[in-house]
Design a protein around this nucleic acid. Structure first.
Lengths: 125, 125
DNA sequence: GCATCGTTCAACCTCTGGGTTGAATATCAA
DNA sequence: TTGATATTCAACCCAGAGGTTGAACGATGC
């Protein structure tokens, strides 16, 4: 039925980043403000296609557009990437916490086994 | 013409992460190995849909599957996320390096202006 | 005014993503 | 064997992504 679930910030940021053209654009922009045409120049695709990519990046708030006469100057905005970084850090913290807990548990068992050496079914490790 | 450009690792990882269901799956998995059905249980969608999400995560090598009888046990694999983190760090380093350079330049100009106070056209800031 | 430049809008195409349902496959339990 | 359980495969639907081309539109420069 395809509910109209509004995609959240992480969705849009990650989606925007999941394309090599758009990552290249960001890379270029992190070196400084750039016009649309200039930005499109190195790519083997129409200007229109690049324009669309830029809109995706804007939607994700990864780039900001400043109009100056007929030129549109794009610049990189790092904040959404910070949010992604935070999510990933939390995720990895979770993960390593669990590994640590597992490790603690194993050491606990080892100690228990050592103090009761009659136990036959030893864990292989 | 739709060239068959094979998507690289970053593409697949970021694409896999750009969906709330899949992020939730990873979150669950970072707490430990889980069966497919158990994993699907909290979601308001068919088991099949979740199965597809899992395949996307596998393609991105974010989860690993271990068969045990008829059960498939999924576990989280953090490496691809490390790669993403590295890319983002590089990106942000780039960005702040440029800001720093800009800042240095401005201070340089300020010093020049101070040592030649006759200059009329002062930068407004 | 008029041509040109920088950019987007609109329409279209094809491929993929996320979802469905129904059937197939493999394992377990009796 | 037979039936239940865990999971995928296959076919389909619809919306959206990524690309194209052609036209429109607002600044700029004679």
């Amino acid at each position: 039925m395809r509910m109209p679930t509004t995609p959240n910030h992480l969705d849009q940021t990650l989606l925007a980043l999941a394309d090599p053209t758009r990552r290249a654009i960001l890379q270029r922009l992190s070196a400084g403000e750039t016009r649309v045409t200039e930005l499109a120049q190195p790519f083997a695709m129409s200007l229109n296609a690049v324009s669309k990519h830029i809109r995706v990046l804007e939607r994700a708030k990864l780039v900001h557009r400043r109009r100056e006469g007929r030129e549109h100057l794009l610049s990189f905005t790092p904040k959404p990437m910070d949010d992604v970084a935070r999510w990933m850090d939390a995720q990895r913290a979770n993960w390593s916490a669990r590994l640590q807990a597992l490790d603690d548990l194993l050491q606990e068992e080892d100690r228990a086994a050592a103090s009761a050496p009659a136990d036959k079914k030893g864990r292989t490790r």
